[in-house]
């Protein structure tokens, strides 16, 4: 029990720290951060339930006003920006990433985690994030979806990195990857 609590708390902290890492501007104004990588990793490493709880813990801290989103934002300061859609989608994305990693046992762990990150961290994230982002900003779905296309190359890279890192963690600390 203590172990689960500590893992959830530390992964929430990891997601926060990944937001501090210097970001790369793919196109001017479209920041590519490592934060969504933390969400994918939480699901792939901790599994569906604990991964989603880690992300919920992170969001609870945002709601308390801590500036842990990349760029020093909290939940209230992104409330009326397109980012809110993605923040709301984060726990679901982590859950689906974990759920898929747990179930794709016929694939090797790195491949399964990478594919699960595409499913949870991209497909589900966009499916929830894009409509909410559009609705919150009086934009059309098509325009928001086109904007989201800019994130696809970066997110594909992040999904691949999730697979690699999950595989390496499993090799270095057997038993630590809880999704398997």
């Amino acid at each position: 029990m203590e172990r689960n609590l500590a893992y959830i708390a530390l992964f929430a902290a990891l997601i926060a720290v990944l937001g501090f890492l210097p970001r790369i501007d793919l196109i001017a104004g479209v920041p590519i951060t490592f934060q969504s990588l933390g969400v994918m990793l939480a699901g792939a490493v901790l599994g569906a339930r604990k991964g989603a709880l880690a992300v919920l813990l992170f969001i609870a801290l945002l709601a308390l006003g801590l500036p842990l989103l990349s760029g020093g934002a909290n939940l209230w300061s992104v409330l009326y920006t397109p980012r809110i859609g993605y923040v709301i989608a984060f726990p679901v994305a982590a859950f689906v990433t974990g759920w898929l990693t747990e179930r794709m046992t016929m694939l090797s762990l790195p491949v399964a985690a990478g594919a699960a990150a595409v499913g949870g961290g991209m497909v589900v994230l966009y499916a929830i994030g894009v409509p909410i982002a559009a609705w919150m900003n009086d934009l059309t779905l098509a325009a928001t979806a086109t904007g989201a296309l800019a994130f696809v190359p970066g997110d594909l890279m992040k999904a691949a990195v999730t697979g690699v890192v999950t595989g390496q963690l499993a090799r270095m600390r057997p038993g630590v990857v809880m999704s398997r």
Partner: peptide, 11 residues
């Protein structure tokens, strides 16, 4: 609450 405090401590 403990988990929240731990996260803040470990960031």
């Amino acid at each position: 609450a403990l988990a929240l405090a731990m996260t803040v401590r470990f960031v």
